Amino acid sequence: MRAAVVVALLWGAPLWAQDCADPQTQADMTGCAALDFAQADAALNAEYAATRDRAKARGAAQADALLQAQRAWIAYRDAACKAQGLEFEGGSLEPMVVAMCKTELTQRRSEDLRRLYENQ
């Protein structure tokens, strides 16, 4: 929940005013996108922790490789979504587009982590 509050404040949308079932303003839509990302990020963090535990069970080298891959993936996600948001640079859509991009990529990464050691 703390991450959701931080994300909502950073995006300029008060957490307590969100009606994400039917957002009516751009600010509400942006706030809801930020909340969606915060939820996806929390799920990713939980999935990463479980995957890290499985990697550690296979040895320090595998755990280190996973850590390096995750760090590189975060840099990729942030850069890719920044690039996507630049289509709307300076406009009210930019933060929403970036948050939606981060949500989508984060959800995909969670699924990738979930499957990483599935068949091993």
Rank of each mutant, 00 (worst) to 15 (best):
A3K: 07
A3M: 00
A4S: 11
V5C: 03
V5W: 01
V5G: 02
V6P: 08
V7C: 02
A8N: 13
A8H: 05
L10F: 02
W11Q: 07
W11M: 11
W11P: 02
G12T: 03
G12V: 02
A13D: 08
L15Q: 06
L15K: 01
W16E: 15
A17V: 00
A17C: 01
A17D: 07
Q18T: 00
D19W: 00
D22L: 08
D22T: 00
P23I: 00
T25N: 00
T25F: 03
M29I: 11
G31M: 00
G31Y: 07
G31N: 10
C32D: 05
C32H: 00
A33D: 02
A34F: 04
A38V: 08
A38K: 01
A38Y: 06
A40V: 01
A40E: 06
D41I: 03
D41V: 05
N45A: 07
E47T: 08
E47P: 03
Y48M: 12
Y48E: 14
A50D: 15
T51I: 00
T51H: 05
R52H: 12
R52W: 14
R52S: 15
D53I: 12
R54L: 13
R54T: 03
K56D: 13
K56T: 10
A57E: 14
A57H: 10
R58C: 11
R58W: 05
G59K: 08
G59L: 09
G59F: 08
A60L: 13
A60N: 07
A61F: 10
Q62G: 00
A63R: 04
A63S: 09
D64L: 14
A65V: 04
A65E: 13
A65M: 06
L67C: 02
L67M: 04
Q68V: 12
Q68F: 05
A69F: 00
A69P: 11
Q70F: 05
Q70R: 01
R71A: 02
A72Q: 07
W73H: 04
Y76C: 00
D78P: 10
A79W: 03
A79P: 10
A80D: 04
A80Y: 07
A80R: 08
C81A: 04
C81T: 00
K82A: 05
A83E: 05
A83R: 02
L86H: 13
L86A: 14
E87I: 12
F88W: 15
F88N: 13
F88L: 14
E89N: 15
G90D: 14
G90R: 13
S92I: 11
L93W: 01
E94Y: 09
P95V: 11
M96W: 03
V97G: 08
A99E: 10
K102H: 13
L105V: 09
Q107L: 15
R108D: 12
E111Q: 15
R114I: 08
R114Q: 14
R115S: 04
R115F: 06
L116R: 14
Y117W: 11
Y117H: 10
E118T: 08
